[in-house]
Design a protein around this nucleic acid. Structure first.
Lengths: 210, 210
DNA sequence: TCGCTTCCTGACCGTATGGTCAGGTTTGAC
DNA sequence: GTCAAACCTGACCATACGGTCAGGAAGCGA
């Protein structure tokens, strides 16, 4: 994607600082939402003066956009395994695995994305209408092919995709609720695995491919 | 719950205004989040001067809390049909119906709820730890009984509940995304029905009760 | 009609926010 | 070593926000 940057001190500084800011911003936006987040808080969390944030990202919205962009890329990437699969068990199974992993490892990013979409996608509407629309059409076609080949039950591919997104993202977006219902403790490794297996079991059996 | 209010002009005014404010607040909180919402905007949408909002609801947080309370009650109420059912097909089927209807009719409230939980439930943590925890334990026990009676496959009841919440709420919380992927048009009656049937088909077959 | 309560609201206030900027320091190509 | 470009930041600004309040209008029991 980006050509290998010359490894100068300057580039190192730039990369380091942008990374720190993005990480802090992701956390703050996830916790407070766009409106509730403040540049000052992000700056404090990144350990930089506020004015420095504006040096790298001209506006709050530009910073926010960069955060959303990051998680969107990760999100799309999760479908790689989906495509190469010979059938629904491998494809959808691997997709659930990947998306559950994202919910665990990038919970903040997932929340930012969810928040953005929930509020009408004010800054990423164009992505929804182009990249996501194409992506969805492609995967829906693949699922339809599996149905036509008798590899799974005839389920509306789009609603199936929504179910996959919903069930996996829920563990990130509603993680706090799940944690509360888990006695106030975050899910353990074992519990994450059990969650993933539960989702896979119900979905795969549900589409007649278990 | 509340004793029948005397039908005076005053009470009518109070009820009317509180209702207008709550309706406007629900919409604004859903669209902008707590931090992004402003009392001025809510006031404008309710057609009242801002100071009047503070007459009925002392602070922004009090107003917000009232909005969340409302949707939480609706949400809990949706499980009524669940309980009286003889088995998973009727119980879970009816629950999905009810929750999908809520996603459609109370999309704004659902978003406010989702937003609240996503941000760590700052104002309704107590509900999660008491009412919701009890509610969940009760339903999980019921599902476990169905499993023990051989009426459905052995699926972790809690993860099944999460799947039910996730799949149904998704149509409210991510309604904008779904709409965009639907060619920019809101789902029609027929499409809502198809969505509900898809969810029910996959879940019920997925728990071996279809 | 009187008098008390509830309802209403324009004007105001302190504060916090996103953003700016002038002036400084560091880096690195030459 | 020179110097321009990149980096850094304390101090500052205009604005918008949540909330207050004094004083008036409307409702209503007696």
């Amino acid at each position: 994607m980006s050509e290998p940057e010359r490894l100068s001190r300057r580039n190192a500084i730039r990369q380091e600082n942008e990374q720190r800011i993005l990480a802090a911003a992701e956390k703050v936006f996830a916790e407070a939402g766009f409106g509730g987040a403040t540049m000052q808080l992000i700056a404090d969390m990144a350990g930089l003066p506020k004015a420095n944030l504006h040096y790298y990202f001209p506006t709050k919205e530009a910073l926010y956009r960069a955060v959303v962009q990051t998680i969107f890329d990760i999100w799309l990437h999760a479908a790689d395994s989906f495509d190469k699969a010979p059938g629904p068990v491998e494809g959808i199974g691997a997709y659930i695995d990947a998306k559950m992993e994202i919910s665990r490892r990038h919970a903040d990013g997932s929340k930012v994305w969810a928040s953005e979409v929930m509020h009408g996608a004010p800054v990423i509407q164009d992505y929804l209408e182009t990249t996501l629309r194409d992506w969805t059409a492609g995967r829906a076609a693949l699922i339809q092919r599996w149905i036509d080949e008798g590899k799974m039950a005839p389920v509306d591919p789009r609603h199936l995709l929504y179910m996959l997104w919903a069930t996996t993202q829920h563990y990130a977006d509603f993680g706090h609720q799940i944690e509360t219902l888990n006695g106030g403790k975050a899910l353990s490794d074992k519990q994450w695995k059990a969650a993933t297996e539960s989702v896979k079991a119900v979905i795969l059996r549900g589409i007649g491919a278990g």
